[in-house]
Design a protein around this nucleic acid. Structure first.
Lengths: 236, 236
DNA sequence: GATTTACAAATTGTATGCAATATGTATTTT
DNA sequence: AAAATACATATTGCATACAATTTGTAAATC
């Protein structure tokens, strides 16, 4: 197996993408040029080109004279995310239903198989990456160059958020994940039937489910501890 | 006035953006590293970084071992464009109406003044760039990081298409351009009134107008020559 | 003792020489 | 003469040395 600089560059790109999607490298983390340069046996010139490419795709942010850092996830991110996602994804699935080729449909089915396998016996990382791949393929099916840039940015943060909610800690959440898988099956069926209306509806359902999953995390039920039983720092 | 490499880089970036938006550099044109490097007094390293940044923004495409070229406009581009534009722009204007700050509204009014001035006495290039600026500001107002990538790509091709239809050759087209300006005024009013529904409706109207303008170019009325008067290559 | 200033170390940015790849031209072969 | 091959030229990609900027630390000043 040849190991050209081209290969090492591709490997670096792929590795960083995965690490960012899976939160192995956290949002806001600094990327050290010298370190990466050594780890991947690349000089700084091609390394920096990879970082610029990742910046263009939305994985990292470049600050002048201050290096690259992984794109942040601020407190406004989730709101912006769920405002944009249903619309973009609705359009993507609608177009996917119209334009999908048999080859792409086969690829989507294969991706869904991988996703199911990951749900059965995979890690949270496996689940997230398999889910990401499934959605990527729907983007390829849609094939609209104007929608893809935003769609890909959504998928990046979708994956990063997923790293939280594909690690179910309550029965209700496990149920949600299973339901997501069933929705994927319905999406495949709608695309295969060229049923754009159903595909668009499923997109909305899918994101509503995601939003509910996140709500279970962000707004848990509380500890059920009556306030009166807690010690007070100041006397009543 | 200082002339650091940083300034020259910024100048190069800005110049290339403008040249591409105005079609001074045509879609598909090759960019010569050596030439640009000389013209802008930059070594090839920072030059290539600028090209990669432009690639991330959608202005150019990079091909391995074969240099950069300006993004193509294929025959499927217009269709993809008008499928995506009303939706994205509707969402942008809706969010702009919700989130615009007084400073941004003032900037939008100033941009509209520039646009009107360009319509009165500016070149096609002036009109295109002024219109582009107007729309850019609405994107800033919306401020949704997931919508902006697609929005910016739409604006690039909107400008490039505009270079055709802001050069009116018939009274009907001149009328269209004037109507576009009036729609800009209505958009400002809707944003200022925080009227998201009207803003979204105006976005749709605005793109319908654009589509009509383009139809006038792509499907002209013909030369009015009756077929029967033309010579035939084969006898009847 | 807190703030400012000067300096040192580390990191990022640029230039240039060299290597690898692609392209065009001339020569050879059939 | 047409096709194939070998070679020369041009262009792109990478590595490394050097310059510029930022950041951390210590001394100096108030």
């Amino acid at each position: 197996m040849p190991d050209t600089t081209k290969d090492r560059k591709a490997h670096l790109l792929d590795t960083l993408k995965r690490a960012i999607l899976t939160q192995d490298i956290r949002p806001g983390a600094d990327l050290d040029e010298a370190q990466l340069s050594e780890d991947f046996a690349l000089s700084r010139t091609p390394l920096r080109e990879v970082l610029r490419e990742l910046a263009g795709l939305g994985y990292v942010e470049l600050r002048a004279n201050r290096g690259a850092r992984v794109s942040e996830m601020s407190h406004t991110t989730l709101r912006d995310f769920f405002l944009a996602a249903p619309m973009i994804y609705g359009a993507i699935l609608r177009l996917a239903a119209l334009n999908a080729t048999p080859t792409q449909i086969a690829a989507l089915k294969a991706a869904q198989e991988d996703f199911r396998a990951a749900l059965r016996k995979g890690s949270t990382t496996n689940r997230t990456l398999a889910n990401n791949r499934f959605h990527e393929i729907t983007g390829e099916m849609a094939g609209n160059i104007y929608l893809l840039p935003s769609f890909h940015r959504l998928l990046i943060d979708h994956a990063r958020i997923s790293m939280t909610f594909y690690r179910p800690v309550t029965p209700a959440m496990a149920e949600s994940v299973s339901e997501a898988s069933q929705q994927h099956d319905a999406i495949i069926a709608a695309i295969e039937a060229r049923d754009e209306a159903t595909a668009a509806q499923l997109a909305e359902d899918h994101w509503n489910l995601s939003r509910n999953q996140i709500e279970m995390f962000v707004m848990p039920a509380g500890m059920g501890q009556p306030l009166g039983t807690l010690p007070r720092s100041t006397s009543a």
